[in-house]
Computed example of a mutant assay.
Amino acid sequence: MKGLFKSKPRTPVDIVRQTRDLIIYANRSADVRESKREDKMAELCKNIRELKSILYGNSESEPVSEACAQLTAEFFRENTLRLLITCLPKLNLEARKDATQVVANLQRQQVHSKLIASDYLEANIDLLDILIAGYENTDMALHYGAMLRECIRHQSVARYVLESQHMKKFFDYIQLPNFDIAADAAATFKELLTRHKSTVAEFLSKNYDWFFAEYNSKLLESSNYITRRQAVKLLGDILLDRSNSVVMTRYVSSRENLRILMNLLRVRYFPRMHVEDIFYLAYQKLQGTEPVTFDKISLHMESSKSIQIEAFHVFKLFAANQNKPPDIVSILVANRSKLLRLFADFKTDKEDEQFEADKAQVVKEIAGLEPRDRP
């Protein structure tokens, strides 16, 4: 007879609904008995873990597409995404991690061949304000940052962030003293500027003046080695993308931009590095397999040419421009002997035929320059 009274297995829809009820309870239960609250919060954390298991599968089974579709449809039907995001600070660390993975996965789930998360976020665009502001909260930054990167997979969402005042905040977030948060913000910044080509090209064309003024002064001329290195690498990725050809032509026609790139080109040693930069470099070099010693750190600092190499990939665009303004030509001519000496023994750590071909072309362009009269 016992078999007749077994509880019916919960469906994905049931779990989402119960999760929603528990989140609502958590948000309004400040004055309830502590033991009851703890039980409810434990149940909420368990539900979030189950949602994650449905979406990702587990050691015993792969995710079932029908179950994932049911879960996704119910999640966006009654604002559960908003509730979960705003409730995140009240969860324990493990539940926050699970919730982050749930929100991230939902951005990729299709219901009837449609990414319904995109429509939901367009209708609830203020959620992006909450996620971006998360970078100002040490406890929430990495969770909200991971969610944010998944949300901007949707072009409409990325466009909102690019066109908002939030973009200016990223120049400060990237330089936060907390290395993990700064690195996460840098990853989001890169995603915003590289994922949706047409939207990025439109944004850069409309916002060229303030964006590159901030980019140059706060990132390329930062006193932080890692900030400069990441910034010049990203700049190369942006300018070398065909969709940004108009922006690239404008960038390489500026003598101020050329000055900054020439300064980056001549960087060989990093005497004013931050302590965290030094140990990060040591970690990258040794990968945790050898004891960290200051001799090895110093050796790596002096031999590293990563900024120079990345700066070269941008500098070559100035040299290759067939319509160089007269002031660009005059700067290159005035510095010709120094540049040619630099490139004579300018090599990558590994053999790179493309790099050598690019360098040869740059040398040829600079060597053949003739001074022009300024208009």
Results as ranks from 00 to 15, higher is better:
residue 3 G to L: 14
residue 5 F to E: 14
residue 6 K to I: 03
residue 10 R to K: 15
residue 11 T to H: 04
residue 26 A to T: 08
residue 32 V to C: 12
residue 36 K to R: 04
residue 38 E to S: 03
residue 41 M to T: 00
residue 42 A to S: 15
residue 43 E to K: 12
residue 54 I to K: 02
residue 56 Y to A: 10
residue 57 G to F: 06
residue 59 S to Y: 11
residue 59 S to A: 13
residue 64 V to R: 10
residue 65 S to L: 09
residue 68 C to D: 00
residue 70 Q to F: 05
residue 81 L to E: 07
residue 82 R to C: 05
residue 92 N to T: 04
residue 92 N to Q: 11
residue 92 N to R: 11
residue 99 A to D: 02
residue 99 A to T: 14
residue 107 Q to Y: 10
residue 109 Q to P: 09
residue 113 S to K: 12
residue 114 K to M: 07
residue 116 I to S: 05
residue 117 A to W: 05
residue 119 D to H: 09
residue 123 A to M: 10
residue 130 I to H: 12
residue 137 N to W: 08
residue 139 D to W: 09
residue 141 A to G: 13
residue 142 L to N: 11
residue 142 L to T: 15
residue 149 R to S: 15
residue 156 S to I: 02
residue 157 V to E: 03
residue 166 H to I: 07
residue 183 A to L: 14
residue 192 L to S: 02
residue 194 T to A: 02
residue 196 H to W: 08
residue 199 T to V: 15
residue 200 V to Q: 01
residue 203 F to Y: 12
residue 206 K to I: 06
residue 207 N to S: 01
residue 209 D to M: 03
residue 221 E to M: 14
residue 221 E to Q: 13
residue 222 S to G: 01
residue 233 K to I: 00
residue 233 K to G: 00
residue 235 L to H: 05
residue 247 V to C: 02
residue 259 R to Y: 15
residue 259 R to K: 11
residue 264 L to I: 09
residue 264 L to K: 07
residue 265 L to D: 05
residue 267 V to Y: 14
residue 272 R to K: 10
residue 283 Y to R: 03
residue 286 L to A: 06
residue 286 L to H: 03
residue 293 T to F: 12
residue 299 L to G: 07
residue 303 S to D: 09
residue 304 S to L: 10
residue 305 K to S: 07
residue 305 K to C: 04
residue 313 H to S: 07
residue 314 V to S: 04
residue 318 F to Y: 05
residue 320 A to N: 12
residue 320 A to M: 02
residue 321 N to R: 01
residue 324 K to T: 03
residue 328 I to G: 01
residue 329 V to W: 05
residue 338 K to Q: 15
residue 339 L to P: 09
residue 339 L to Q: 02
residue 340 L to W: 04
residue 356 E to Q: 11
residue 356 E to L: 01
residue 369 L to D: 05
residue 372 R to Y: 04
